[in-house]
Nucleic acid binder design. Structure first.
Lengths: 123, 123
DNA sequence: TTGACATATGAACATATGTTCAAGTATAGT
DNA sequence: ACTATACTTGAACATATGTTCATATGTCAA
């Protein structure tokens, strides 16, 4: 045991704000919070959302995605890799092209929920 | 009309990738995409999610939020301003303290959805 | 094999974001 | 009035993120 003589100040405790309100309040764990944040961050980019929006309508190759969205193929490819890593899209190769499609339709629920949320705010 | 002699290359059109797949595919508008992205980005921070997690359980003052989460009061205050601007939290002043509470419980739905999504992935 | 196309990748760059630090308000108690 | 507490704010700093550019990789066609 690490005793330090007499009278140790509990340094890690809040010194003031004696409210007992904090009791029983269980904060989200740091690790899980980070995982959730990573997931939300993934959707926190306009171009990524736009990519998901077109893939939700049709399977498309990189060039076409870039074409429809007015993005560079390189930029699209970079973003697709992010979506690939998170298992949100899958792809199949045909000839020289790589066709991407939405893999996790779970995401569309979030997408739609927020899309509606935005519309409500404007009203 | 801006005619340039004979045979003008349609420079702005995709030169290759003749797939008609793009037809009918309506991409999410840039503006709305940005609004949605902003909203998701808001949830794309671990500390902000943790703040929301404790506020979802109880109204708390800044000091207590900082205390429970192990954050600086300054950091908490900065983040609360973000949440305030987005109308996700409201506050009331009592004595010297400012008590914050969750305003938009709509967000909790998204929060829970992703929380479950994370849990599923681990299984 | 050569050349055009389709995509991927890495480095560099610019921008955005979050924390810290220091200073500023504001309020309550003595 | 003085001091401690509670919170806010702005600037500085470090980090993260996304795009661009140049360069790979791979595939098809001639």
């Amino acid at each position: 045991m690490s005793t330090v003589g007499t009278e140790i100040l509990p340094q890690c405790e809040p010194l003031t704000c004696d409210s007992d309100r904090v009791e029983g309040v269980e904060p989200l764990g740091v690790e899980k919070a980070q995982q959730m944040a990573d997931f939300f961050s993934l959707l926190g980019d306009a171009n990524r959302l736009r990519i998901l929006s077109v893939l939700s309508q049709r399977e498309l190759c990189v060039h076409d995605i870039a074409s429809v969205l007015g993005m560079t193929e390189s930029a699209v490819s970079h973003q697709l890799r992010v979506l690939r890593n998170l298992r949100l899209v899958s792809y199949r190769k045909e000839k020289r092209k790589v066709y991407y499609q939405l893999l996790d339709h779970h995401v569309l629920d979030l997408y739609n929920a927020v899309a509606e949320h935005i519309d409500e705010e404007l009203a």
